[in-house]
Amino acid sequence: MEKTKLSFDPFNLIITGVGGQGNVMASRVLGNMLSHKGFHITIGETFGASQRGGSVMSHVRVSSASSLSPQIARGQAHMIIALEPIEAIRVLMTYGNPEVNVLCNIRPIHPVGVISGELDYPSLEDAKAYVTELSKSAWFVNATDRAMEQMGNPIFGNIILLGALAGTNLLPLDRDDFKMIIQGDMTQDKVKINLDAYDMGMEMVKG
């Protein structure tokens, strides 16, 4: 297996979102795609109680040399994928730096404190402005709404974002690897819908 060179070695990526958005699944698919390319992958994630409506985060580390700490150190992220906009801001506070790239789904999920009226949720314009200011490049995509419209289920938002990540060309991701990895666990029609979501994501960050 020939190894493509990484822009940073190790490359530190964080997938963040809210319990139930499928970021554990996304991190595992992404990890397997890069593992298949011959890299050493370490994924650190929290699940269990935190899945119940809380913020959920996966640290995905890509290295040409070895397994690494499953927790990235402060200020050390190269790429942040946020399945929910305010989670991007939350993660940037701890792991961000002026060189970080952000790929952000713009569909809000209101915390219960916001639903009950105790806390305020920012306007989308503000959230986008903060993310943009705290990153080197930021991509904003409407993955959840597109997933509901075209795939009939918001959960495909995570695959759309994986496709979008591939579209940014920041990591050596291969559509065929994606296909091969999901094929092991899915029926043919499920594979097709996932490939559609992946392709849609790729398109969304182009141009």
Partner: peptide, 19 residues
């Protein structure tokens, strides 16, 4: 400093909740 200010302003806490 900037990241902390924005997070305080725009990242309301996410308490655990029943699904």
């Amino acid at each position: 400093e900037k990241a902390e200010t924005y997070a305080l302003k725009a990242a309301p806490a996410r308490d655990l909740t029943f699904c």
